[in-house]
């Protein structure tokens, strides 16, 4: 599934956090690609990624205008089924946040809430999700053990597996490796490259090398605006906007 954004503005009370994203020709996030959001802290990356699964709805005084279309449907229309939207658009956070329950129950959590009760079916989903998240071999013999006993990198892969178990089409990741060591980061990056064959992935990263390693397209944010959105190769080899150039080379400020 692709995402298209037309003239998106977002306010937290009086604060104008996103300013006219996709204002001219619109912004298109392509299917089966990895799209990276980069930019200085506080420029609105997390805010924007949360627009895609309406996570901002939970925030008081948050107002959003514009058109966000996923799979041909404007997700901010009244008729939108939010549960279905969140099923389609999964999210992985900066700090791994496994539930304090067994590895198995973590993964089975979403399918159970979507009404799957049969043990055999759940078993199958758990195994498939863990395999997809490249975690199965490491945990298959201790599915009943607490997820909190896993290492940080394993916990993050568990969270990815948990997201996959809901069978999403789009996966949003907000700095998913910033709390991990380089080896775990490498494993997650390999995993992301693998997952994009099946899913559309949007990732916020403050690690520019990570953006160059895994993303196909990159959007550079500055003070609530998308300054430049292009092929990652283009952004890091020959950006068009001076502000992008200054940011990626670290000349910012």
């Amino acid at each position: 599934m692709s995402i298209s954004i037309k003239n998106c503005d977002l306010f937290y009370g009086d604060f104008h956090a996103l300013k006219g994203i996709g204002r001219d020709e619109g912004m298109e996030i392509s299917e089966n690609k990895v799209t990276a959001f980069i930019g200085p802290s506080g420029c609105g990356k997390s805010t924007f990624i949360r627009v895609f699964n309406r996570m901002n709805d939970l925030i008081q005084n948050c107002k959003i205008t514009g058109e966000i279309t996923i799979d041909g449907q404007n997700i901010y229309e009244k008729s939108t089924d939010i549960t279905q939207l969140r099923k389609n658009v999964g999210m992985v956070f900066q700090k791994p946040n496994p539930f304090p329950m067994s590895i198995y129950d973590n993964i089975a959590f979403a399918p159970r809430t979507y009404g799957i009760k049969k043990r055999a079916q759940l078993d199958e989903i758990v195994e498939r999700s863990l395999r997809q998240a490249a975690l199965w071999d490491e945990v298959s013999d201790r599915l009943k053990k607490s997820a909190l006993g896993l290492s940080g990198g394993q916990q993050q892969r568990l969270c990815i597996a948990r997201t996959l178990a809901a069978e999403p089409k789009i996966i949003l990741m907000d700095e998913p490796t910033s709390a991990l060591d380089p080896i775990s980061t490498g494993t997650i990056e390999d995993l992301i490259r693998e997952l994009k064959k099946t899913y559309t992935i949007v990732i916020v990263t403050h690690n520019m090398q990570q953006a160059t390693r895994i993303s196909d397209k990159t959007a550079f944010f500055l003070m609530g605006e998308v300054i430049e959105y292009d092929k990652t190769r283009q952004i890091f080899s020959n950006p068009k906007d001076k502000r992008t150039e200054n940011y990626v080379t670290g000349r910012f400020g």
């Binding site: 520019m208 090398q209 890091f236 080899s237 150039e245 990626v248």
Partner: peptide, 9 residues
């Protein structure tokens, strides 16, 4: 330092 963009060039 991983220079990019014009620095890399």
């Amino acid at each position: 330092e991983h220079p990019v963009a014009s620095d890399f060039h």
